[in-house]
Nucleic acid binder design. Structure first.
Lengths: 235, 235
DNA sequence: CGTCCAATTGAAATCGCTCAACTCGGGTGG
DNA sequence: CCACCCGAGTTGAGCGATTTCAATTGGACG
């Protein structure tokens, strides 16, 4: 029985292998990595994975569902710093200090794989391609933060929102989901907080984009109607 | 003669050892790292280190001087993505793809250490603490981008400018320079571009902060007069 | 069926931008 | 050595995008 359960959750059987840490691992190395990965039953919506300032022990790979990371300013306001989809890794920003600078919370029912960092370090001393892969993932993350920064810093509210949708679109599509129709797991205020916009602005922009027939909005269901025009909006 | 030159530029003699990749390396490992580091004569102001879209071959550590990284939007506008001081590493965002997503240019006369990435990868397979250190540096960078993002996304223009000064202040101070008096190597428009503000706004804010006697501005010389009040402004 | 939170809508206020003119300082060439 | 020039920086006025405040609607769930 426990065998069944283990099999079921092995990286081996995970459709996200090609997006996650195991990329490029084979045979024994693959098995070794698998052996340190911890699993848990799916978490419900709104569950904390770790809090800001928590001690850092593990990275987490999203297996299914989605997660937001956030930071709390000294006045208590919460700022969303990122949205994470299956195959993506959270906690990388804590490696440097051993303390989580951001918290993480599930946006919907979510399954995680836990990667104890000390064991991951031990393993990457033996299997160099693991640290290679980790570095690649971090670098990727760094790059997308830069993109985001540029966007938030100097694009219109409309362009920012469109850019978020296009980012989600391409990420969904790489995971085998539709690039043009998806359901947002985050609230309007999460979106606003992430993009540096007021909730009301998000709402008005959605309406306007719909009126221009660029997208179709139904509560949290989004349909991108004019990909080319949308892409042209984010320069 | 060549020995003298080599000694002069060895990590061994570098005051930035404790801020740079060598952190935690000793004896033979230290020597091995040193052996792959390339040096060049100081670059003048305004020199490109690499262009956006250039193929990635090396990381660069700033030895002295300063550097800005930037991105070019499809309409040709240049966006500053970061300022880098001695002991900091540039090029990390290119590891994932092998292509530099951002360009890098000197802001003043600047000396660099070149770290060929393929050799660094080979080395970190032998010396695990190198990849550990690299991961730590990347994570650090990730964290500071998050901070920046939060700031740019949701703070007032004034708070953003103050936050930049405080960041420079603490970075200068860790390098043994004054935490309250420094000379900006970047132009007002670099600052504006980095913070997502118009040049004129930067100028007006500097004036206002000076009138409030929080800082003192003389061209590019900045003196922070009221650290506590300044810190309180960035929540 | 009522409650509560998320989302929407409207109106007024504001922060930062754009456009335009002007100043200042440093470097260059006569 | 001085006058000129050019880019960087400053200053002013008006405008516009986004925020804020306030009220309302709508859905999900008990």
């Amino acid at each position: 029985m426990s065998v069944l359960r283990n099999l079921k959750i092995a990286c081996n059987n995970c459709s996200l292998q090609q997006l996650c840490i195991p990329v490029g691992l084979e045979g024994e190395d693959f098995t070794k990595l698998e052996s340190i990965v911890g699993h848990s039953r799916p978490l419900p919506r709104g569950k904390h994975i770790y809090l800001p300032e928590d001690r850092f022990t593990s990275l987490y790979a999203i297996r299914s569902g989605s997660v937001k990371t956030y930071n709390v300013a000294s006045d208590g306001t919460e700022y969303v710093t990122g949205f994470y989809l299956p195959g993506e890794i959270i906690g990388l920003d804590a490696v440097a200090t051993g303390i989580h600078p951001c918290g993480a919370r599930t946006l919907e029912t979510t399954s995680l794989c836990e990667l104890p960092y000390d064991r991951l370090e031990d393993l990457s001393a033996i299997i160099p391609s693991i640290s290679k892969q980790l570095l690649r993932i971090m670098s990727q993350e760094l790059h997308s933060e830069e993109q985001l920064l540029m966007m938030v810093g100097s694009q219109s509210a409309e362009a920012r929102l469109v850019a978020l949708f296009l980012s989600l679109s391409s990420r969904f599509s790489r995971r085998g989901y539709s690039a043009t129709e998806f359901v947002l797991s985050m609230s309007r205020s999460d979106i606003g907080s992430f993009l540096g916009l007021a909730v009301e602005t998000v709402s008005r922009l959605l309406k306007r984009l719909q009126e221009q027939e660029l997208i179709q909005v139904n509560h949290r269901e989004i349909k991108l109607l004019e990909m080319e025009k949308l892409r042209a909006m984010v320069k």
